[in-house]
Design a protein around this nucleic acid. Sequence first.
DNA 1: TTTTTATAATCAAACGTTTGAATTACCTAC
DNA 2: GTAGGTAATTCAAACGTTTGATTATAAAAA
Lengths: 345, 345
Amino acid sequence: MKKKNATLTDIANELDIDVSTVSKALKNHPNISETTKKKVSKVARQLNYRPNAIATALVKGSSNLIGVMVPHTDESFFASAIRGIEEIAQQAGYNIVIFQSHDDQNTEIKNLETMYRARVDGIIASHAMYTSDFSHYQDVIDQDIPLILFDRFDNSLDSDVVAVDDYKGAYKAVTHLIEQGCKKIVHISGNMGVHIYDERLRGYKQALKDNDINFEEDLVFESDTSIEDGQQLTTKLWDRSVKPDAIFAASDNPALGALQVLKAKGVKIPDDVAIVGFSNEKFTSYVTPTITSVEQHSRRLGEIAAQIFIDRISKDRQENDNKLPQKVILTPELIVRESSQRKRK
Amino acid sequence: MKKKNATLTDIANELDIDVSTVSKALKNHPNISETTKKKVSKVARQLNYRPNAIATALVKGSSNLIGVMVPHTDESFFASAIRGIEEIAQQAGYNIVIFQSHDDQNTEIKNLETMYRARVDGIIASHAMYTSDFSHYQDVIDQDIPLILFDRFDNSLDSDVVAVDDYKGAYKAVTHLIEQGCKKIVHISGNMGVHIYDERLRGYKQALKDNDINFEEDLVFESDTSIEDGQQLTTKLWDRSVKPDAIFAASDNPALGALQVLKAKGVKIPDDVAIVGFSNEKFTSYVTPTITSVEQHSRRLGEIAAQIFIDRISKDRQENDNKLPQKVILTPELIVRESSQRKRK
DNA sequence: TTTTTATAATCAAACGTTTGAATTACCTAC
DNA sequence: GTAGGTAATTCAAACGTTTGATTATAAAAA
């Protein structure tokens, strides 16, 4: 049986004084005499008193909880983001409650409902992959619960946002490939309609355009961003008579899949085909050859998301109406590795 | 400004009835007439009423929160475990609050204190790497807060435990190497004194013994389980006149480090040297050659941990004293890959 | 008509804090 | 010796629920 925790009342009874005196003594209120404070802290220590955060939350109307929702906690991008969020939140005295959407909109809605009931002070979320109706997020905003969307977000929502500039990342990647002498660059995209993949495609197109390379529709492939899909696409692609000289994948997984297939075919990487992925997954620097990729600074993303939440909370408290949603867009970094670095420069 | 949430009182006022009636109506209490229930749910919907979990927690004396502490959320082992925990917890109506210890004992203690104050209903934790004094965990037990230690644990503690049998995993790995014809097997360990690494070392020794191979002290190396350490150790090792014919690393990182160095040296893997790692990190199946490793079923570990918590809670409620701590030890699985599979069999 | 029973609602206390207002006790000054 | 002031404490309401005890109402049984 769970032992009962000591309460302010217990301390008050012990000393035969009022609870409010005890409460104030413990928070060093000026109206309480030093003698009383001493006595109170002594008894508090004896009874192993620990303030009941739930009771405090009820009175203060704030739970000190941040709801954090990601598709899955074990995708390395999100795992790092959570790390960043936890560290900043903890410093500021907030605890984080984790929810997984499993990339499913209904689960997303259910989770938001749970957060409402838990009276979280704010929500940091990366929405489900195929979410297209954002009204449940609009509800969050309408209820004036601070909402910070990270990585994945929708422009129709007036929320805080912290994300990576996918467009720029892709632009950098493709420009790099062109600089390496590539002219026929395949793009393996993710699910079209998902903002981040649309942006990467846009960056791809723009880089081509800026370098006077014609955009060819049939060099772009949709994928589910799995290794297997990368393999299959590449296999099919190599049945064509005209081969590309580079692959830019919107995710590291298909980049790896492509690399594996090409290696097996004896295609020289990067000389015959250069490869660039996206996300800078750990394995990109372990495989042979190492894969050039775009670093998204996921931990930093999480830290900033948490920081924005904290800023917003304190602004809300000050009631000055400086509450324009904040959009922080990080510029991703291209990490050049063997898979795209042609020696002949 | 945060909008005020509708309360039971709001509904009661609207209908000019008592809050308790409203409360009971919403939970379908038999004493309330159907007519009233209808009216109440209607108004509840109109006002967008959502039960305040904090108030309920205060009355019920249970927060519906599980505190989860890991060294870092972005280590893939823990990230998966968290995934497992979240899924089971969520199903059972519990939310999980995440804490990181950063492998630091003081942070660990601080986090436990925060959990106490948050009145978590239970704690699932994997203790900090170098924690040797477990009194802060004993405190948890003494306060009758369900404590489930996973992966890393200490035998002096009478807590629930769910872990992988490191001894068996190592035993399997080394036996496999011997079966492949290896006789001089190096072991790259982690920090000695840490239970999991001690166990892996023990498994290594026993497998040697059971196969009549002498244990040689100078084939065992302590490492910080980083790739770099694996590289350095291997480099030094290859300066010796007599080379080993296998490396069993207690972690995948140094296994990878060793593999990289040996590949660079032109050493044939697995024919000259076979390599086995531990943890089955994703990258083990992506690198060339792919690395044999020991799968620890981390997500499953998390699921079981959460399940044990739930069982314990319900047992506590029944007050039947069937409360012996539960120890679940999973048998790890050896995933044989190229780095140790000699064709000549 | 009176008593019993069932039904449906209300009452009231409790959970553990917080906090402004009110009270008490004591000291100082005129 | 009383008004005024200060310092220290207590009072009381509030936060939003839950729940056993109690009461009110009406219908059924005596």
